[in-house]
Amino acid sequence: KEFRPGDKVVLPPYGVGVVAGIAQRSVSGVSRAYYQVDFPGSRSKAYVPVEAPHSVGLRKAL
């Protein structure tokens, strides 16, 4: 896996977040693995496909 729990990442347009782990989510009846990204200071979460994280701009924070 490219990202691990605890990694600081950037996800446009949300900003800097932390990978909380990998979650299985069902979309249109198909279960897939997603990185769960939490954003400190907020209750917001984002789910990014493990198979294509760069397709939505997910990258490691510098």
Rank of each mutant, 00 (worst) to 15 (best):
K1N: 13
K1H: 15
K1Q: 14
E2S: 11
F3W: 11
R4Q: 11
R4S: 11
R4C: 14
R4D: 03
P5C: 12
P5S: 07
G6W: 02
D7K: 01
D7I: 03
V9L: 03
V9G: 02
V9T: 04
V10P: 01
V10I: 13
V10A: 04
L11F: 07
L11P: 08
P13S: 06
P13T: 07
Y14D: 01
G15V: 02
G15C: 12
G15M: 03
V16F: 13
V16G: 04
V16Y: 15
V16L: 15
G17H: 12
G17T: 01
G17S: 01
G17L: 02
G17F: 03
V18Y: 12
V18D: 01
V19T: 00
V19W: 01
A20G: 06
A20F: 10
A20Q: 10
G21C: 10
I22V: 06
I22M: 05
I22F: 05
A23K: 13
Q24A: 07
Q24N: 12
Q24K: 11
Q24L: 14
Q24E: 10
R25L: 14
R25P: 02
R25G: 06
R25W: 13
R25T: 06
S26T: 15
V27H: 10
V27A: 05
S28D: 15
S28H: 14
S28N: 15
G29L: 03
V30R: 07
V30Q: 09
V30I: 10
V30T: 07
V30K: 09
R32K: 13
R32C: 08
R32D: 03
R32P: 02
A33E: 13
A33N: 10
Y34I: 01
Y34L: 02
Y35K: 01
Y35Q: 00
Y35I: 10
Y35L: 05
V37F: 02
V37M: 01
V37S: 01
D38G: 06
D38W: 15
F39D: 00
F39A: 00
P40F: 12
P40D: 09
G41V: 07
G41Y: 11
S42T: 13
S42Q: 09
R43G: 13
R43T: 13
R43L: 12
R43H: 13
S44A: 14
S44K: 14
S44H: 15
S44Y: 15
K45F: 11
K45S: 15
K45P: 15
A46V: 14
A46W: 08
A46C: 14
Y47S: 02
Y47P: 00
Y47W: 12
V48G: 01
V48S: 00
P49G: 03
P49K: 03
P49I: 05
P49A: 06
P49Y: 05
V50G: 01
V50D: 00
E51P: 03
A52Q: 07
P53L: 06
P53Y: 08
H54S: 09
H54E: 14
S55K: 12
S55C: 14
S55Q: 10
S55P: 05
V56G: 08
V56N: 10
V56T: 08
G57Q: 07
L58A: 04
R59S: 06
R59E: 07
R59H: 13
R59V: 09
R59G: 04
K60W: 08
A61Q: 08
A61D: 09
L62K: 10
L62R: 07
